[in-house]
Amino acid sequence: MSAQGARTIYKEHMIEEYVVREEPYYLPLSDEVEVFEAAYAQKIPVLLKGPTGCGKTRFVEHMAYRLGRPLTIVKPRSKQGLTEGGIPLVTVACHEDLSATDLVGRYLLEGESTKWIDGPLTRAVKSGAICYLDEIVEARKDTTVLIHPLTDHRRILPVEKKGQVIEASGNFLLVISYNPGYQSALKDLKHSTRQRFIAIEFGYPTREEEREIIEHESEVSPEIAWELAKLGEKVRNLKEHGLEEGVSTRLLIYAAKLIGEGIPPRRACHVAIVWALTDDAEVQRSIEEVVSTIFE
């Protein structure tokens, strides 16, 4: 950046250079780690399904770290920095205006001429990163078509505007996520897309597992974590009975963190769970009653 690079107080990475350095905590609920490793070894794209906040993103980070670990050891610091320790993780959160251009790249005006800028997907393909397209169905339909050639045996990315085809680097893997719960039928994933991925389904963890996750993430006492896990289980019973979606582990962790900071448990649950989940006064009150039944 500037001459005084040493003074920067924030970390800035090129998108394809972002590597997960520290092991993200992830508690396997089943054999998803092994399955993912096998898929990675065979370069089979992966679809992660599951409700919001159940740990899909964390899982991808965890896997990026885990799969990159041997590389860190084998290859010491190199000049290029691209493969410097671990597999880069390119995460794109999809939104409804996300178009193919946004993923692949575009021309920008620079001075008198135009300049091509690679999009995140192109960069990931080139650098051999794990490219994680979060909530893929939110994006425009043209993006899903774009990833088709990348996700079969061809593993190529056509860049129409430049008249190029980029072959994916050996390490490249496409991972997409998708929540079948609340998307309307209009936004369902097409079969031509869907059948290019293996699917790993994420559910909510069991009470015991969730307690462990909450305890680890927020450093509250096991008792509080246990009660929160219990609350999570109870509130999830309300899914489709007032709630569109059960409470996520993420929210439970937030509540735990607030409790850790000294907020009384009922209040913490109030702000982190009750209000976060719904605007419907009656549902709020029901959850509130469940909270007051569980927490003193």
Binding site: K234, V235, N237, L238, H241, G242, E282, V283, R285, S286, I287, E289, V290, T293
Partner: peptide, 11 residues
């Protein structure tokens, strides 16, 4: 309705 959801949550 409140009690219904409450009992649903518990059970």
């Amino acid at each position: 309705e409140l009690l219904r959801m409450y009992s649903r949550a518990l059970t």
